[in-house]
């Protein structure tokens, strides 16, 4: 299966890429291509031009400074999953990246492509949301920063404008007392998340919970935060019984279902995966 014809651009800087996007309204950004090329082959997408950002140096690499980790948009899942910096600073992100697709896909797929595509059943959006990631974006008018909670708008829709490029993702480095985890129940054929849960937990000196975050992939049209469950854990002892009881009250009002798993089933699954993510994050805190 061939994609439809398109013009191919390979800019060497973000500015050049933005210029090409601005002057080609029907252009799409090509990063790893592991979501875009399959839909182009199926002719579900037929952009007039592709802007290949895969060789822009500024979009590569993982660096750590001032309490945060900066991950370039073109860093692959493989690099994230195997980065000692990410494993130490944001284990939930490394775990999520390591569970996407398969070995071959992880060598090509990128964090920027994943978050911009905003597939609700993919693994990175909930991890980015739970970790409080900041997404850096550049467009013709300059650069801006968007919090993960403002970035995911709806099913495969983000706050990115058509002429903007996601350049990097900034994740806070876990401080002492903070742990995070990502666990998922995957579709046995596709590997996509029927439900993926990302949790971040902080414990104070006494061991009680001083902060918590719990987010899900796969159960709704976007990654969603279970804010009420997380809030109910603050001040608690984070025992297994406390976590079980907190997730028992989980309600995702806009849960979605399909022929494989109903909305109700996914919601129940979210309670189980949520508890597992929270207890693993607690053990790491």
């Amino acid at each position: 299966m061939y994609p439809s014809k398109f013009d191919y651009h390979r800019p060497s800087s973000v500015q050049e890429a933005v210029q090409i996007l601005s002057s080609n309204p029907d252009a799409k950004i090509l990063a790893g291509g592991h979501s875009l090329i399959p839909v182009m082959k199926l002719r579900l997408a037929a952009p007039a031009a592709l802007v290949d950002i895969g060789r822009i140096d500024a979009l590569q690499g993982i660096s750590r400074s001032n309490g945060s980790l900066r991950i370039g948009a073109c860093v692959t899942y493989h690099e994230i999953a195997n980065s000692a910096d990410v494993q130490a600073a944001a284990p939930a992100l490394a775990e999520a990246a390591g569970q996407i697709g398969d070995r071959q896909v992880r060598y090509r797929g990128t964090i920027g492509g994943n978050l911009s595509h905003a597939d609700p059943a993919s693994d990175l959006p909930a991890a980015a949301l739970a970790l409080g990631a900041t997404l850096h974006v550049t467009g013709p008018g300059g650069s801006r920063s968007v919090s993960a909670s403002d970035f995911f708008v709806d099913l495969m829709m983000t706050a990115l404008q058509p002429d903007e490029i996601l350049t990097g993702v900034e994740v806070p480095v876990a401080q002492s007392g903070t742990g995070s985890a990502y666990v998922k129940w995957e579709h046995p054929a596709s590997g996509y998340a029927l439900c993926g849960a990302a949790a971040v937990v902080t414990r104070g000196a006494s061991g009680s919970c001083t902060g918590a975050s719990l987010c899900f992939n796969g159960v709704s049209s976007t990654a969603v935060a279970a804010t009420a469950v997380a809030a109910s854990l603050v001040g608690s002892d984070l025992s297994d019984a406390t976590i079980e009881s907190a997730v028992g009250d989980l309600s995702i009002p806009d849960a979605t279902g399909d022929m494989f798993a109903s909305a109700g089933y996914r919601q129940e699954l979210a309670k189980v995966m949520g508890a597992r993510a929270l207890s693993t994050a607690r053990d790491r805190a």
Binding site: Y8, R10, L30, G33, H34, I37, P38, K41, D52, G54, H78, R103, Q104, V105, Y107, R108
Partner: peptide, 13 residues
């Protein structure tokens, strides 16, 4: 040196 699915990579990439 990395295993990739060549049906999902453009020759130009």
């Amino acid at each position: 040196g990395q295993a990739v699915k060549s049906c999902t990579v453009l020759a130009v990439q």
